[in-house]
């Protein structure tokens, strides 16, 4: 393994993705869940940029979409935090298990 191929990057992306999912699935703190989402998005971005590097047709597209994802993630974080703060204002907690008023 003298040369660096695409596979290690994809594996790293997969690892980040699984960590993100695990984070979402195991945190009760709303902000912790938000962090998990950030991890998942980063996993996708790693794949985008890696593919941009290794597949010549995607050289531009991969970067463009990575950038779009970064901007989207920023927006998503802002809205999510606003919602969390709102929730915190109303319920005095950030424990998502308390947000079960809509359950069946």
């Amino acid at each position: 393994m003298t040369e660096l191929g695409l596979t290690p990057y994809l594996c790293l992306g997969a690892f980040l993705f699984c960590c993100g999912l695990l984070c979402i699935a195991t945190k009760r703190n709303a902000i912790g869940i938000l962090m998990g989402v950030e991890l998942v998005l980063n996993a996708a971005n790693v794949n985008f940029v890696a593919c941009a590097r290794y597949v010549p047709q995607f050289a531009l597209e991969g970067q463009v979409f990575a950038l779009l994802v970064i901007v989207l993630a920023a927006g998503e974080a802002a809205v999510a935090l606003a919602i969390i703060l709102n929730f915190y204002n109303n319920h005095s907690t950030v424990d998502v298990d308390k947000a079960d008023e809509l359950k069946g």
């Binding site: 191929g5 596979t7 994809l10 290794y54």
Partner: peptide, 9 residues
């Protein structure tokens, strides 16, 4: 997926 893409262009 990474098969055959061992070195960057």
């Amino acid at each position: 997926l990474g098969e055959g893409k061992n070195s960057p262009p």
